[in-house]
Nucleic acid binder design. Structure first.
Lengths: 222, 222
DNA sequence: CGGCGTCATTGATCTGCGTCAACGGCACCG
DNA sequence: CGGTGCCGTTGACGCAGATCAATGACGCCG
């Protein structure tokens, strides 16, 4: 939609506006802020979580290096951005960054682009958890991760997932047991291989997309 | 976050960029566009739907007069924006509107603001359909609608819903039967009254927010 | 105002996933 | 290199909500 490479350099110039935070794996990048916050994730990986009710935690989105992340102030639910691995982030008050960005078209373009990308992903997640079976959800998750952090390997793809089964479950509205069973089924059907806790090799992307209920194979552009 | 009244006037000036569409209830405002589209809904009400798999339709969002709506091009799923009642809309190709808006800060501000509002709502929906029981989902839906189209009536609130039970069900990831039963239960508990097919009176917003699992009563500010 | 079609409600039964429980294994640390 | 603890896997069972089915009523239009 808009070029982002040059704009990321522009964004780096704004470091003075925000706080640089270096966070260890499992640590909190943003939590309990009373105002909307924008976070530029320079390196690492993170999950945006919301506290739904009592002991239930919903993973709203996963984010990776280069992402510009909007963390809402508490309203109906409270949010936190947590590091999945050691990460570097620049944290901005949303209002300040937006008012400054008004003077810098490239910056504003980058912000709008990231907002629409997040919106599109959030909607896809709504579709997935609103109308799909456990198997479809897991397949959608794998394809989405392949699209974002997959290492191509011929017409296959290798994933090194930074998140635990619990994170996946909390993202898909399922339980860890169901995730485990579905991955087992997919392995039994020859669609994936697993190695260790975090490596998954996707053996047949087309078949996976089919059982995800996708119209077309997810494109790898932006 | 940003003033929107003046910006809506600015937006109206852009009519020449887009197509004005007057659509009857049940008609299609946008469907099968091959490019991302932005729609300014001048009057009426609409649902953004996605086709999940076979016969399953997911309502991604409800929109009302004054909303600026992003309709994505088909990717993993196909989207359509359908009128819930007679509506007037201005339909823009997203790329064109954004490039023009780069020259008009007020316009860009309005676009960013609407994008973040849609993102926040989409995330709330993910939380609701990912981690909540049927009763919580229905309570969340009622509170959300009260916030957007409710008519205050003392400390109560009256809703005239433009969408059918099927639309509500497809929005919450439930079935029409479950919606009906949950509304019946809420009526039995004295939290709501219903009159006709589309009128619901919320008798106790605080109790409803509690059973929605909300931290705080939803504020009515944009 | 009356007839008809669509939509909503209510009931009975079924099932996918959650819950509870026990086991297994990878990884980390001493 | 062996112990320990967390994380993941696997199995048994129960339940919330889906599905199937039938009735009821709202609202539209002649």
């Amino acid at each position: 939609m808009l070029p982002s490479v040059a704009a990321d350099e522009v964004l780096a110039q704004f470091e003075a506006l925000g706080r640089l935070r270096i966070v260890a794996s499992g640590g909190s990048i943003v939590a309990e802020e009373s105002e909307d916050t924008l976070v530029y994730l320079a390196s690492g990986a993170a999950k945006l979580v919301a506290f739904a009710s009592q002991d239930r935690e919903q993973v709203v989105a996963f984010h990776f290096a280069g992402d510009l992340i909007s963390v809402p102030a508490p309203r109906a639910h409270a949010y936190a951005l947590l590091a999945l691995r050691a990460s570097e982030a620049i944290v901005f008050p949303a209002g300040e960054l937006l008012s400054v960005a008004h003077e810098h078209p490239a910056m504003m373009g980058r912000i709008v682009c990231s907002a629409y990308t997040s919106l599109r992903r959030s909607r896809e997640k709504s579709i997935v958890i609103g109308r799909k079976t456990a198997r479809e959800r897991v397949a959608c998750f794998l394809i989405s991760m392949a699209d974002r952090i997959g290492l191509p390997e011929g017409n296959r793809c290798v994933l090194h997932l930074p998140m635990s089964r619990r994170d996946i479950a909390d993202s898909l509205g399922l339980t860890i047991e169901t995730i485990s069973r579905q991955l087992g089924d997919l392995r039994g059907d020859g669609l994936i291989e697993t190695a260790g806790r975090s490596t998954i090799r996707l053996l047949d992307l087309a078949a996976l997309a089919a059982c995800a209920g996708h119209l077309i194979k997810q494109s790898s552009q932006i």
